[in-house]
Nucleic acid binder design. Sequence first.
DNA 1: TTATATGTTCGATA
DNA 2: TTATCGAACATATA
Length: 265
Amino acid sequence: MPELPEVEVMRGYFEEVVKDLQVTDVEFLDPLDKVYKSSKEEIYNNLVDQSFIKTERIGKYLFAQLSNGKWLHLHFGMTGSLEVFTDQYSLPRFTRMAIHFEDGSRLAFVDSRKFGKIEILDSLEKYKGTHTLGEDLLSIKPDDFVMALKDRKIPIKAALLEQKHFAGIGNWIADEMLFEVGIHPEEPCNKLTEKELKTLLKSAVEICRTAIRKDTHYGDFPDDFFVNYRKEGAVHPDHPHSKVESLRVGGRGTFIVPEKQKLKP
DNA sequence: TTATATGTTCGATA
DNA sequence: TTATCGAACATATA
């Protein structure tokens, strides 16, 4: 489930639910250790007896700083999420790691498909220096967004899904913004005008802010959000005579309203 | 049984 | 060398 808004909501758990609480124990529940990018020992030793003092999010990447100065880095892959719970006797299904706090609350890293990653970083600056992670979508300047895209030949949707120039857009948000602005996902970046690119950015930021405001509960999203109709044959109320079509762009399932999203001649 | 899934990375190719 | 594309990763659900 995790695109930028989901990760922002999960960041809130560190800021509002467990901030400054001492960690009393850590449970590891991935038998094949797929999601532990640092060793379990290193994760355990850096969490127990410490507390979380500060957080940072870049796109879909979440960092929480510990009282010993190190950082816990979480990435949620396709199916990861964080759940707060207090029941002492049951863990959410597919929990891969559970952090216990002094007040009895627990934070579960849940990830059925195990594309997620948990690791300890000595320094956030060092991490940024060695990874091609762009600016967070919510703070990139419009001119930088345009520069990153205007000369590319790949389909606009494929470029939106990269994280190296600006980070945070995932598959449903890409479809959502392209629908809103009325651009076909296969349109080559370099055929879009500067104005269209800037409109896309505005739309993306607005979509993210709305989703965060609703705590990413899909059911609470505005009725005209495309994600509510994002399946083959569905009918968006603004386009009653143009059924949603599915295609593959950039290797990902993609949905469009053909009447609104046409390739340029 | 087969297809698909809200992500990232790596290797092949142009 | 750089840009792009497709496959692979591991597992659940329809």
